[in-house]
Design a protein around this nucleic acid. Structure first.
Length: 93
DNA sequence: AACTTGACTTCCG
DNA sequence: CCGGAAGCCAAGT
């Protein structure tokens, strides 16, 4: 996840594949949920396959991630990110 | 040891 | 494009 550049996003499934988890997307999410908040990785650049944030709107969790992404220049259209445009392509890095 | 849960994904209507 | 069902697997009950 640390390789995801600012202004780009990756899906849980994508991260899971790169981690050798064979596309077990839930494990990527589970890892982040279990990890401490002060973790040294850009967790906010990971979203779901539909281009939306997978956190509950309650307790400001959702808004925090959305704000962090917008601060990097990512634009939300109707609570959704345009993956065609913002998805990170590891190969081209 | 069986059952439930979940920062998910894909397929179908 | 959206919601529901099925598939997935580690952790917690």
């Amino acid at each position: 996840m640390r390789r995801i550049p600012p202004g780009k996003v990756a899906t849980y499934g994508q991260v899971a594949r790169l981690a050798g988890l064979g596309g077990q997307a839930r494990m990527a999410g589970y890892a982040l949920h279990a990890a401490p908040d002060e973790i040294d990785i850009p967790w906010h650049r990971v979203i779901n396959a539909r281009g939306r944030i997978s956190l509950p709107r309650e307790n400001g969790q959702y808004d925090l991630q959305k704000t962090l992404l917008e601060a990097e220049g990512i634009v939300f259209r109707n609570e959704t990110v345009d993956l065609q445009r913002y998805r990170w392509r590891p190969e081209k890095q």
